[in-house]
Design a protein around this nucleic acid. Sequence first.
RNA 1: GCCGCCUUAGCUCAGCCGGUAGAGCGGCGCAUUCGUAAUGCGUAGGUCAGGUGUUCGAGUCACCUAGGCGGCACCA
Length: 645
Amino acid sequence: MIDLIFPDGSKRAYEPGTTGKQVAASIAPSLAKRAVLIKLDGELLDVDRPLEKGGRFEILDRNAPDALETIRHDVSHILAEAVQELFPGTQVTIGPAIEDGFYYDFAREEPFSLDDLARIEDRMKQIVDRDEPIVREVWDRDEAIRHFREIGEEYKAQIIEGIPAGEQVSVYRQGNWKDLCRGPHLPSTKAAGKAFKLTKLAGAYWRGDHRNPMLQRIYGTAWASEADLEAYIRRLEEAEKRDHRKLGRQMDLFHMQEEGKGMVFWHEKGLTLWRTVEAYVRRRLDAAGYQEVRTPQVLDRVFWEKSGHWEKYRPNMFVCETEEGEELALKPMNCPGHVQIFKFGQKSYRDLPLRMAEFGACHRYEPSGALHGLMRVRAFTQDDAHIFCREDQIEEETARFIELANSIHADFGLERDHIALATRPEVRAGSDEFWDKAEAQMLAAARKAGVEPVIAEGDGAFYAPKLDWVLKDSIGRTWTCGTIQLDYVLPERLGAEYVAEDGSKQRPVMLHRAICGSLERFIGVLIENYAGAFPLWLSPVQVVVATITSDADGFALQAAERLRAAGLRVETDLRNEKINYKVREHSLAKVPVIAVVGRREAEEGKLALRRLGSDGQQILTLDEAANVLATEAQPPDIRRRGSEA
RNA sequence: GCCGCCUUAGCUCAGCCGGUAGAGCGGCGCAUUCGUAAUGCGUAGGUCAGGUGUUCGAGUCACCUAGGCGGCACCA
């Protein structure tokens, strides 16, 4: 007999080979009817799977959160079935559930069209209506290879060949269609429901390797209910409204054009935002004991040969030639330059830790397909810094950095989702002992700062592990901003050293770190996080003084001057337009404060302040308004400083 | 870089089976001075991304190039 422990803690014994469905039936017929999956010791299984062992046992209906992934996986199979019915000769490959949905990769000569998606979707709904039972079968591996090869499924056969010989494989059958699959699945195509939608077509390399043929990937989304599907679609629409590329144009922040692929033309308002962010970060770095430097933009090839970039990174570098035949390259990163400053003169152990910062403008020739608005560009400015320190200072410096980064992210309204510890990649420099040590150091430092990192297996740089910040924005999307990487290699390679207490020459360790990553990207994230409606301190235009009639023009100009004198970024709107029109226009432009001036205000020397997103107003004298707004517009670090005083 | 889609006025977009361009917003002009999310009238804007071809005729079809978008790969 096997013992099943139910969620309420009760325990019951069953014959081995009893199915989940039978267990459900033994409790209540209605439960058996609703049961679509079971969970045994945390593992999801088919409801009809005979149980071989006991354990913590749970019966799931299709609304259970844990069932959603299986619904998506089922729908991906239904997609594959529909495609093979409609397009005979198409080979199936893999089709997993992913966040918010699923995809399936197909091999077919002719590309699918957008029109095909609608046809496929219709057929999928028919398959759901057919209520085809989904049945698990266990096959011999070699027989499975033979079978799939026979029916022309070369990719499937290849997948099975990857399974060790002698093992059995599971094949799921629905109607006349079958697929190699680990499962689990719901009991029938009907259980998957119809709350799905095919969303996009894309190319994807077989097995994720660009040397392999390109397959056609169909993406879809699937949910337990129509309502969830609707909510998801609304969420997408909301995200689209926040697109920084769209808002960047609408708000006149920046633009890009084809002659400068991946390069940004910052307009006045965008640069104001930039300067605000930069000034803030600079103050934080100053306060945290960093020294700011600036290193050359273009350096001779010889320099990059020494640093190793010429050999390893050349294809990603912008290279130019001079009239005199020199070969120069734009810097793709700041570290080699910083090492030069470190090496200039002698450094003592007393100089360590030495925190060297630069708002470093870097150029990288990124593949054209990788470019994406401000998020991935070819010319960008890193809020870069390198901390030169002794090995025994790594933990302390990393922990301090974690606190600094956390505080800065929070000031920008970004919540931390998690910090990832990226561990040794497959291709790497250094021994296993080195990696054991380096990974342990990063982990210990994170814990010292009270953070338990999520392990990102194999994501480290080739020379060392790193911590990456994954931030969550106001609508729950995540962005990777901020990193700290341990580096033993570059100081060695470029010959950085310091004089230790005993007079010996020692190698410092370098910590590469950035909090924003690149200012371009970070500003992109900020635009999307705030949907363009920035808090007062970041807003490019903080106040618009708008007149109701031209009688108030004089006072409006005077008020604007007064607010400017208080340090605010102010525009005036004296146009001969109705106040409704002005309010609407500046509201759409996401100006945080509109100061309305009519005859009344002009006479009394007051301003009627209207905040974005509210239709109330606050009537203040000019001086009061200047004080209130100037205080409100203080960057968070300055405000804290003020409240401490 | 790879696969697919897209590119029409400053912006957002319409243009059926090929018959030589249209709207709204914005701009400009005039009138209106009107108290919190669109005042009215008038008017100027286009080598239909660029190129080649098919055709009596191409914004519409084919091919090439560039850029953009969605993915994939890349992000040392």
